[in-house]
């Protein structure tokens, strides 16, 4: 069976959920073959095996621990030349798109960005213009390179015993040109990562102050969710920019999205309207967020949200 290359995304030795999603998509069109830059931990190996990786290419050079884009693109070129894969799948992260863009030029291959589905015949589905249109497309030239949005598919376990292949890639001088001179990891939040979370609880201008955000956090914690914020809130400095949901922030697609004090401007909706279920709390009965909410409460969130948090705890006890 021909290989479908999947670029592994990993941090601190752990494989990201999106990589398991890519493996599930890859198995539709061939044998998933993972390209893993850096040391492969036992935990990473077992996750990749559980989700159907038939082969794991390990590319381990010092440069891959530094600025990873060009070493990754160069490794994918080397492996593609050897194995002529059916397609190359990459997570649609900032880094993934950068790798994909460079790779498309290097291979002279067409690239599809931000796919939300890939069929066995490689037809991709994309959601565009703030999710108002569904586009189907195919790569017509070269090895299809497809970057896939997180949470687009449910990973399905398909245990295998992967073959491990170590690959030596000559890294170019250009790949070493950028250096990370300092890296300060953010404080590890006990909450799930926003882009991966199954529940997201967000606050907008209606929250009223930075202090009131503790109400949003309490609700998020009650549901095991991540905290999101509208752009207005991050502009006001009430909450961290890294939690911004919307066109210029993160795009989320959780099972449940709770919008508190968010009017629902198009820029915000662009980042969350593919959420499976939307619950909204707003004082303005005409707020556009109610047009897309499955359940809306017209009222003061400072009263509704704590009551909701309390009721969740009561029902669970």
């Amino acid at each position: 069976m021909r290989e479908v290359l999947v670029l592994a995304e990993h941090e601190r030795g752990q494989i990201s959920k999106s990589t398991t999603e890519l493996l599930t998509l890859a198995s539709r069109m061939g044998m998933p073959a993972v390209v893993h830059l850096g040391d492969l931990t036992e935990s990473a190996r077992s996750v990749l095996a559980e989700y159907g990786a038939g082969k794991i290419y390990i590319v381990d050079r010092p440069a891959v621990h530094e600025y990873r884009v060009l070493p990754a693109a160069e490794a994918l070129v080397t492996i593609s030349v050897q194995s002529s894969p059916v397609a190359i799948l990459i997570t649609s992260s900032a880094e993934g798109k950068e790798i994909g863009g460079r790779l498309a030029v290097k291979l002279g291959s067409g690239i599809i960005i931000d796919a939300i589905d890939v069929a066995a015949d490689l037809t991709t589905t994309q959601s565009v213009f703030a999710d108002s249109f569904i586009v189907r497309a195919n790569v017509a030239t070269g090895i299809p390179i497809i970057t896939v949005k997180r949470n687009s598919t449910t990973p399905v376990a398909a245990p295998t015993t992967p073959t491990i292949v170590k690959i030596d890639v000559k890294t170019s001088e250009l790949a070493m040109a950028a250096t990370i001179v300092d890296r300060t990891p953010h404080d590890q939040s006990s909450r799930p990562e926003l882009s991966d979370a199954t529940v997201v609880v967000s606050g907008g201008r209606g929250v009223g102050s930075a202090d009131n955000f503790s109400l949003i956090e309490d609700l998020a914690d009650a549901l095991g969710g991540a905290v999101g914020a509208s752009r207005a809130v991050t502009d006001l400095g009430w909450y961290a920019r890294s939690n911004q949901v919307g066109q210029t922030g993160k795009t989320v697609s959780p099972q449940l999205y709770i919008a508190n004090g968010i009017s629902g401007a198009i820029q915000h909706r662009a980042g969350m309207q593919t959420s499976k279920t939307i619950l909204a709390v707003n004082t303005d009965p005409d707020a556009p967020i109610f047009d897309i909410a499955d359940f809306g409460v017209v009222g003061d969130l400072l009263r509704v949200v704590p009551q909701l948090t309390e009721e969740i705890a009561r029902r669970r006890s």
């Binding site: 709390v281 009965p285 359940f295 809306g296 017209v298 009222g299 009263r303 509704v304 909701l308």
Partner: peptide, 14 residues
């Protein structure tokens, strides 16, 4: 979907 007016029990309804 459904829209309710909070009359003291909005959180419980949600």
């Amino acid at each position: 979907g459904v829209k309710v007016l909070d009359e003291g029990s909005g959180g419980i309804q949600a």
